[in-house]
Amino acid sequence: MLIRHRQRSDIRPSEITPEGIYLRRREFIGAAAGALALGAVTPAWSALIDNPEAEDATRPQWWRDAVAARRDGKPDTDEALTPYSDVTRYNNFYEFGTGKTDPMRHAGSLHVDPWSVTIAGHVEKPGTYTFEDILKGQDLEERIYRLRCVEAWSMVVPWIGFPLVDLIRRVAPTSKARYVAFTTLHDPEQMPGQRARLSGIRWPYVEGLRMDEAVHPLTLMVVGLYGRTLPNQNGAPLRLMVPWKYGFKSIKSVVRIEFTETQPPTTWSQMQPSEYGFYANVNPAVDHPRWSQARERRLPTSLFNPNWRDTLPFNGYAEEVASLYRGMDLKRFY
């Protein structure tokens, strides 16, 4: 499959081309193998030799075709993209383990085909929709978003997906629908992290948005990245991406979308309400109780340059979304 990227004068091709990824990967594997020789790496090191191209090749043709037929979407950014190798090898997806490389190493056990999503609650067309149904006739677009993790690092990722509002229109919520609740797959057989003891997380992972946030044109349902189908470790086959909120709001591997009248529970705010709120809008003025949110490290960083930059209100999307929160005390509704 041809991996095509738009050529932009403001982004050096070397930053985004797969060739660079191959080079980096060899470097990475070589170093890991060398470290093994020194006896410092766990036996799972061999799984580091993952193969995203091979995974993409196993995806159903209709999914790959839909991703290939994407068009360029807005907004855009002239910021350098975080390389594919980092976007797919540095993930928080606790269903596969709490280490950053755990998802990359363990997400192979997730079966994304067949996949279906249950639409429930206050909608005129509830039911179980297959992933293929959801993609059928749905235009996809590539959008380059900043992703700001609550842990004070960030990436720039070319996602492929469709606005959530498209799906919402298709299932026709009633006037009672004031919130949208999302649920990740709960299957400890496929998701080793859900078998872990001593974890504070209650599975399944749940997230939610207010209706006006859910229908906002920036809110995306993602099915691919970097011109390929979405890798398992990034939340295949279908994940949310809300670019003005901390990354944990953008729930992965969604199996259920429910339209509710009251604010739905969300995983992190249930576990640690003083640290994570329902809104979780990126806000440099409101620190996490344990660390500052004023700055972020834009990945990849290097040993001698942590690449700090100032965090922007609403992750730089204030112009588009600040009006949603007019009159709200953002220090209280963090």
Binding site: A31, A32, L38, A40, R297, T301, S302, L303
Partner: peptide, 16 residues
């Protein structure tokens, strides 16, 4: 090991 990995870019995208 960790210093060597650091210079080889083998500590991941956030080596520090």
């Amino acid at each position: 090991v960790v210093l060597w990995q650091g210079t080889r870019g083998a500590l991941g995208p956030d080596p520090v």
